[in-house]
Amino acid sequence: MLGKTAGGLFWMFRYLERSENTARLIEAGFRIALTRPDAAESEWASVVETAGVRAGFTDKYDAFEGSAVVDYLLRDTTNGSSVMSCIEHARSNARLVRTALTREVWEAVNESWMALKEALKRPIREADLPGVLGLIRRQSALVRGALHGTMLRNDIFDFARIGTFLERADNTARILDVKYYVLLPAVSQIGSSLDNVQWETILRSVAGQNSFRWLNGPDISPREIGDFLIRDGRMPRSLSFCISKITGNLTYLEKQYGQDYECVKQARLLHHRLDNTPIDAIFDFGLHEFLTDCLRDNAALGMQIEEDFRFSG
């Protein structure tokens, strides 16, 4: 496979994952705005922060007003991480790697692009927002379904999955990091209902609120949320799950190519650290510091993968 193709696949799936994550973030923010109007502005601010586009947003707008945030995150093509930008990037990468995709995967991406282009043509009215966010999630599921149902399980598949999980790990780490103050033990002692809402938002942003209840019952504690999103290998958006998938796909590549890679060593190390650091130790060390390390290590892993597999020269 061409190095360029591997890179194209990696980025195509990163962007697809990002568009889905952004839709979920907005969904969670929207819910808070509806149920707790007084907390709306600070919630929208943290949504923008989590999406990693605060600088661009504040250049353009003075306040974190709901419709502005939604527009910036969904439609604004000057925002390189908006859903529309992501789907454009994803499709353009898909065209680049067209020969590596099955017809069904290509058509799913192309169809998503057409559907979202149409849906995001005009500013989204509040009444239409749930429908549009649902559409984004469904389109993402369509591509994923086509990928799983039709692609060979070879290096092509591995690079697609690695892109997906690296992006997802980043996203979960950022959601936690932006909200880490509500998970701090000192604050959580207060146990006010506002905190409960905040925790719930965290879970909603990763589509994990019910799963969490099934696993942990009605009591929400910072320790358990942290454990769920960082270390629980059953939760498909937890850091541990993502890193273990990345490690798995990299290991397949190593086997298929019959060669040792630096990036695989790095991934194993990250995986090992997550598995062997109890949640209490993470809180003792400092959640923010821990998450900062995770984000930095993910970025380094991404660059090492790019180098090891010759994405660009």
């Binding site: 496979m1 061409l2 591997a6 190519y257 597999f309 010759r310």
Partner: peptide, 11 residues
């Protein structure tokens, strides 16, 4: 080495 070669993930 006197050939046209493409950059693959394996060299």
């Amino acid at each position: 080495d006197g050939r046209i070669a493409m950059r693959t993930t394996r060299g």
